[in-house]
């Protein structure tokens, strides 16, 4: 069984990664780290660069956990996380969340909301400040 971690290269993604690895270790689960981008901007800071992707892979290898890093572009990020979770019969999805006002959510959309509503399994959310 697997745990799917939604990852972005910032404190929110790190929080999810941290908690996800903890859960994976205690429940003896495989880890799939997902990073995705709609890919409609020229530059997307949340899209992990090739070099950083290799670094991430090395970091995971160092922890000794059975893992895979999955990256895709040109997709809706929330949908992609849900899709990977369904495909791998995930037991748990872990994502980092940021505080956002209701208006902000209407304007910017919410990846977290998509994942929570559509995921085929329990979703664990975490704010970096509670870790």
């Amino acid at each position: 069984m697997t745990v799917v971690i939604g990852y972005v290269p910032n404190q929110y993604g790190e929080a999810a990664l941290h908690l996800g690895l903890q859960e994976a270790a205690s429940r003896q689960l495989r880890v799939i780290v997902v990073n995705a981008s709609r890919g409609d901007a020229f530059v997307d800071k949340k899209f992990v660069t090739e070099q950083a992707l290799r670094d991430l892979d090395e970091r995971l290898t160092a922890t000794g956990v059975d893992h895979r890093v999955h990256q895709s572009a040109g997709v809706d990020v929330g949908d992609e996380i849900v899709r990977v979770a369904e495909q791998n019969h995930a037991e748990l999805v872990v994502i980092g969340i940021r505080p956002r006002s209701p208006v902000g959510k209407v304007l910017m959309g919410s990846v977290a909301q998509t994942v929570i509503m559509d995921a085929p399994c329990p979703v664990l959310t975490v704010r970096p400040d509670v870790l």
């Binding site: 809706d76 304007l107 910017m108 959309g109």
Partner: peptide, 12 residues
């Protein structure tokens, strides 16, 4: 048309 899904924001 070009694929944006944040309609409310675009309108504003």
């Amino acid at each position: 048309s070009l694929g944006s899904r944040t309609l409310v924001r675009d309108l504003i």
